[in-house]
Simulated assay, not measured.
Amino acid sequence: MYNPNMHSTYWDIREAISAQYPDYKWNFDALPFGLTTINFGPQTVCDDHIDDTDNAFGLAPTRSFGPFDYKKGGHLVFPSLKLAVQFCQGTEAWIPTAMLPHANTQIGEDETRYSVTSYNSGGMSEWVYRGGLSKRGWLKYLKDKSRALEEAGLDVERPGILRERLFPQWT
């Protein structure tokens, strides 16, 4: 696996939600993602965008399918990088959808292109991190327990801890 720490973090999120809601039905047994978007086409084209409600630290697998000439259209585009990548049928790319603007190009008029993207929302991670509380419930808990200042201090450290876990420097 490219990033086993990210994979295990996603499974931790899935297991925490499954423990709280044992009847919740996941889209796929073998994937840790809670959400999947299937674009049935026939002309699936996405304008330049970011998925700002996805996990900011995560990668999302995006796949394309259908009979289209991938050399002429359906390219995966990263405008901020000034990069377009030929994206043929059955290809899968893992991209940071919440951080990196992305799009795809038109295909031929008589062609068909479908796409499937799996991801976790940032809200799922927040809910697990807060022990099953909404943001409002979490803030109330902190206030009731007089822990708001302590948590604010820890929040300064958390991005570094998360970055170290998910993106270790390999030697």
Score class of each variant (00 low, 15 high):
136 R>S: 01
135 K>S: 11
129 Y>P: 03
136 R>N: 09
125 S>E: 12
137 G>M: 08
135 K>H: 14
146 S>N: 14
145 K>Q: 15
140 K>I: 04
129 Y>N: 13
124 M>C: 15
121 S>D: 05
143 K>N: 13
133 L>Q: 12
131 G>P: 01
121 S>G: 11
136 R>A: 12
146 S>W: 10
129 Y>H: 12
140 K>P: 07
124 M>A: 15
127 W>L: 11
125 S>P: 00
131 G>L: 13
139 L>G: 08
150 E>P: 01
138 W>D: 11
149 L>W: 12
139 L>T: 04
126 E>M: 14
133 L>S: 08
124 M>K: 05
146 S>Q: 12
122 G>Y: 07
134 S>V: 02
144 D>K: 04
148 A>F: 00
142 L>R: 02
132 G>M: 02
130 R>A: 02
130 R>M: 06
140 K>M: 07
133 L>P: 02
126 E>P: 01
136 R>W: 02
132 G>L: 00
144 D>G: 05
142 L>D: 13
130 R>Q: 08
140 K>R: 09
122 G>S: 10
126 E>W: 10
134 S>C: 02
138 W>T: 08
127 W>G: 03
145 K>D: 14
121 S>A: 14
149 L>D: 14
128 V>C: 02
148 A>G: 06
140 K>D: 09
144 D>Y: 04
140 K>N: 14
128 V>S: 01
141 Y>A: 06
147 R>A: 13
146 S>A: 14
145 K>P: 06
124 M>R: 04
135 K>E: 13
142 L>Q: 05
136 R>L: 11
130 R>D: 09
132 G>N: 03
133 L>T: 07
138 W>L: 10
130 R>P: 00
123 G>W: 05
136 R>V: 11
147 R>C: 06
127 W>Q: 01
132 G>T: 03
150 E>D: 04
145 K>H: 13
125 S>M: 14
150 E>R: 01
137 G>F: 03
125 S>Q: 12
123 G>L: 00
143 K>V: 13
122 G>H: 09
130 R>L: 00
138 W>Y: 15
145 K>F: 10
123 G>C: 00
142 L>C: 12
134 S>T: 12
139 L>I: 08
143 K>W: 12
123 G>K: 00
143 K>Q: 15
140 K>E: 12
123 G>A: 00
131 G>R: 01
142 L>S: 03
148 A>L: 11
127 W>K: 02
141 Y>Q: 05
137 G>H: 08
138 W>F: 15
140 K>H: 09
139 L>A: 06
144 D>Q: 09
143 K>F: 11
134 S>L: 02
125 S>A: 14
124 M>E: 05
129 Y>G: 08
121 S>L: 11
147 R>N: 05
146 S>M: 14
139 L>V: 09
128 V>Y: 00
148 A>I: 09
146 S>D: 15
128 V>R: 04
150 E>G: 01
141 Y>M: 08
127 W>D: 04
137 G>C: 05
150 E>S: 02
122 G>F: 04
125 S>H: 15
138 W>A: 07
125 S>I: 15
142 L>W: 05
146 S>V: 15
144 D>S: 08
121 S>C: 14
121 S>N: 12
141 Y>E: 11
138 W>K: 10
133 L>H: 10
128 V>G: 01
127 W>P: 01
150 E>Q: 02
124 M>D: 06
150 E>A: 06
122 G>D: 07
125 S>T: 14
125 S>R: 10
124 M>F: 13
142 L>M: 10
149 L>G: 07
143 K>G: 10
147 R>S: 10
147 R>M: 13
